[in-house]
């Protein structure tokens, strides 16, 4: 039996098993900490930083932090909220996110966070970098304009031999997501579906199924992202 510990999030006392990931413990207790790169059960990457909280006065990513006894976690404070909003805005200006023309619109986690944090306009100037669309494989499009480098696809979408379909290329400003087009020739329907589902933005889209859900019935049309976690307790 693993050790039970107690700590607080925004003053609320939480009991958990020592070593569990903070973001997951919070979710189990009805506290929503936003994520873009984290996926439960997958080794955390800590790449998007949207789950940043303050632990004992220091900024930490809650998807890579195991819980420990007596931790004092601040999450829903004006300071953290603004920091998260700034990250959302940075992601919006860094890529080319044209929501009106995106098939993922309404079901997009990044956009959902923009709504939740009421982003009216980013505080940073738009970069408008030119990026390419990889459309040569039969099952999916890879829209590099929209990639936020969460690395979910790299970590999760693999063929039966364990080879990744996706990979990062370059460093820093030149970093880009790439698709192994040869391997993707034979991507299964199941993998294509999963890839589109886990992509938090509209960078991975299945071919031949655009705009399936009408406006008004999409994931974030009526309720903010995170509602499913916050409603756990009610």
């Amino acid at each position: 039996m693993s050790e039970k510990i107690k700590f607080t999030i925004d003053g609320k006392e939480i009991e958990a098993e020592k070593g569990q990931l903070l973001v997951e413990v919070a979710a189990e207790n009805g506290i929503y900490i936003p994520v873009l790169c984290h996926w439960k059960g997958v080794h955390p990457a800590g790449s998007c930083r949207i789950c940043t909280v303050k632990i004992n006065g220091r900024f930490m990513a809650s998807c890579t932090t195991p819980v420990d006894a007596n931790m004092v976690v601040e999450s829903n404070t004006p300071e953290i909220q603004d920091l998260r909003k700034a990250i959302i805005e940075m992601l919006f200006v860094e890529g080319n996110h044209f929501c009106p023309s995106c098939e993922k619109s309404g079901d997009c986690d990044l956009q959902g966070l923009g709504y939740r944090y009421q982003m009216m306009v980013p505080r940073f100037p738009y970069a408008f970098e030119r990026r390419e669309l990889e459309a040569s494989t039969p099952k999916i499009f890879l829209e590099k304009n929209r990639c936020i480098f969460c690395k979910r696809c790299v970590r999760m979408i693999k063929d039966e031999e364990g080879r990744s379909y996706f990979a990062f290329k370059g460093r820093g400003k030149h970093l880009e997501i790439n698709l192994d087009t040869k391997l993707a020739e034979h991507m299964s329907e199941e993998n294509a579906r999963l890839a589109m589902k886990i992509c938090p933005v509209g960078a991975i889209l299945r071919k031949e199924v655009g705009f399936e859900t009408p406006i008004g019935k999409r994931k974030y049309d009526h309720v903010p992202i995170g509602s499913e976690i916050e409603n756990l307790q009610n």
Binding site: N96, F98, P100, M120, V121, Y126, F128, R130, R131
Partner: peptide, 19 residues
């Protein structure tokens, strides 16, 4: 007041940005 996506971020006409 900036009204709408095009005023706020260039919108669809800005898809030419970068080209």
């Amino acid at each position: 007041i900036s009204l709408g996506e095009c005023a706020i971020m260039g919108g669809l006409p800005a898809m030419r940005n970068g080209i």
